[in-house]
């Protein structure tokens, strides 16, 4: 088994068939990368949204706690 082309330039030219071969391989690599990357990106987005949601819940809980605490002090004062 040996490299079939004399030079890198002839490897890219592919005896005149270069554009077709490289366009096909380029498109395949592009589609495969998109297939592999989209779920990763979506997972990251899901995580981010979830963190935000968690923070909101936390803030709401804290606000509710503060409100009930101040209510209790107000009742105590009365």
């Amino acid at each position: 088994m040996q490299f079939q082309f004399d030079s890198l330039a002839s490897f890219f030219a592919m005896n005149g068939h270069g554009p077709y071969v490289w366009a096909s391989y380029g498109m395949v690599v592009l589609v495969l990368v998109v297939l592999a990357v989209t779920p990763v990106l979506r997972q990251r987005k899901l995580r981010r949204e979830f963190q935000q949601q968690l923070r909101q819940e936390e803030a709401r809980r804290r606000a509710a706690a503060a409100r009930s605490a101040s209510q209790r002090t107000a009742e105590a004062v009365e």
């Binding site: 490299f3 079939q4 490897f11 005896n15 270069g18």
Partner: peptide, 13 residues
Amino acid sequence: LGFAPEDFKQGNS
């Protein structure tokens, strides 16, 4: 792309 031999009829395509 690089090591398989060229097809004598279709060339590199």
